[in-house]
């Protein structure tokens, strides 16, 4: 695999990888959750859309990555299955959850942020960095060599987390 190979993660998707890979995604009201093991240099990115699967939980065709409650569990499970890393080895960085469309009552972005925070607390995964909210999109690049994330909010300069 080429050094620094970028792999895009679409909406309602999870990708896991290891050093030499850079997971990338673009967010609006969706939240991008990066989980990383500094000791093993492996991790994954979940691009989730909604806070909870709710009634859809019973649906076998469900894309688990769509929802925070099923997606976070799936991301942890995939990292463990792929690399043998336990959740106690993981740290989190979260991004996105913006309210891009104005004049809409529901703030899904804010709901996603709260849902992810609660799930990380429940799983005892510390949040090392968080850049969330606002009204603009986010472009993030998660480097699995270093665990660092470059985040660029639309209209702003990129920042490293």
């Amino acid at each position: 695999m080429a050094l620094g190979q970028e792999v895009a993660v679409g909406m309602a998707d999870i990708k896991v990888g290891k050093e030499s890979q850079i997971l990338t995604t673009v967010l609006g009201s969706c939240v991008g959750l990066c989980l990383y093991s500094p000791s093993h240099k492996v991790g994954g990115l979940l691009h989730l859309m909604m806070p909870s699967a709710g009634m859809n939980m019973a649906n076998p065709d469900l894309k688990k990555a769509k929802y925070a409650d099923t997606g976070v569990a799936d991301l942890v499970r995939m990292i463990k299955a792929s690399f043998g890393v336990q959740s106690s080895d993981l740290v989190a960085k979260m991004f996105g959850g913006a309210k891009v469309l104005q004049g809409v009552e529901r703030n899904i972005g804010a709901e996603n942020i709260e849902a992810v925070k609660a799930l990380l607390r429940a799983n005892a995964i510390p949040v090392k960095a968080s850049c969330v909210g606002g009204e603009r999109g986010y472009r993030i690049k998660f480097n699995l060599e270093t665990g660092r994330v470059i985040c660029q909010i639309f209209g702003n300069q990129p920042e490293e987390f």
């Binding site: 609006g28 603009r136 472009r139």
Partner: peptide, 22 residues
Amino acid sequence: VVHDYASTVFGEYIMEAAADLN
């Protein structure tokens, strides 16, 4: 109207329809 990344604009567009469908 939204001025943003193309992926953000498209993602918000399909959000409602994509909530219950893959």
